[in-house]
């Protein structure tokens, strides 16, 4: 493929939305209230909409007949390049919100930079996504505050979720080989430059939510290289079920 780096780069971005969208979609009909149920489904819907834009573009770049669905549903476990954070399960609503919040703050900052990409398609997609993700970030931040500064029980649960998920935040700022290549061409975003601002705004909000900032110095990584947590395989079994069971059909 002529544009292998660009292709990899797009998949790296899109897989985050794909896997997180799938996680949020699991909650549909099972939320703590009708309003939160609708909001979580809405976030899932936005993320899958983004995935379609990215994969349609990736399919054009690949130019080998693979469709958006082939790319989304017919890769092997090791070929998914989402960050580990995105695949963490919906242990309870605090984990759902914590995962969303820790991702949203990064995602929003990332998209704002991607709007400046010299690749006009990517810039246009980012331009559309940034509006949606601003809403996601407001929703998840508000809920971190509500749960953190709500009852004693909710504070404990929110704290536990943040403590557990914190270990996956550092990976957001790692650059793969394709990332580096795309940054050098002015197409990609240098995520390392987003790191300080990210931790500053996350910490500020956690403090406002009366939560402690985790002080662990140990972080997990691997998602961007396709080395995932054990959770991903099960998620993919659902995601890929129809395409694997009924290959080469149209739906």
């Amino acid at each position: 493929m002529k544009n292998q780096y660009l292709y990899n780069y797009i998949l790296g971005i899109a897989d985050n939305s794909l896997i997180l969208g799938q996680r949020m979609g699991e909650l549909c009909g099972h939320g703590p209230s009708l309003e939160t149920d609708i909001a979580c489904t809405n976030i899932s819907l936005d993320l899958f909409g983004q995935v379609r834009s990215y994969f349609q573009y990736a399919s054009k770049i690949a130019g080998d007949g693979r469709t958006e669905d082939d790319i989304a549903m017919l890769r092997k476990e090791r070929e998914y390049k989402n960050v580990l954070l995105a695949e963490q399960p919906n242990t309870n609503f605090a984990y759902t919100i914590g995962r969303q919040f820790l991702f949203d703050v990064y995602h929003l900052a990332f998209l704002k930079e991607l709007q400046k990409s010299t690749d006009l398609t990517l810039a246009a997609i980012a331009n559309k996504c940034v509006k949606e993700v601003s809403y996601h970030e407001r929703f998840s931040s508000d809920w971190v505050k509500r749960l953190g500064d709500g009852t004693e029980q909710s504070r404990q649960k929110m704290q536990e979720a943040i403590d557990d998920l914190w270990t996956y935040t550092d990976e957001l700022f790692h650059l793969t080989e394709s990332d580096k290549e795309m940054v050098s061409q002015g197409i990609g975003v240098d995520a390392t430059l987003l790191k300080d601002a990210y931790y500053n705004s996350v910490k500020e909000l956690l403090e406002e939510a009366t939560l402690h900032i985790p002080d662990s110095k140990y972080f997990q990584k691997g998602g961007k290289k396709g080395i995932h947590t054990e959770h991903l395989g099960y998620l993919l079994s659902d995601l890929q079920y129809m395409q694997r069971t009924y290959p080469n059909m149209e739906w």
Binding site: G25, L34, I38, L45, F48, D69, L239, M242, M249
Partner: peptide, 22 residues
């Protein structure tokens, strides 16, 4: 929702179930 056969179908199904919640 998690097993919809294509992205287009998944998005449509999500939107539909969300309509029902609405």
């Amino acid at each position: 929702i998690t097993r919809a056969p294509s992205l287009r179908r998944k998005v449509a199904l999500l939107a539909k179930v969300q309509d029902e919640a609405g």
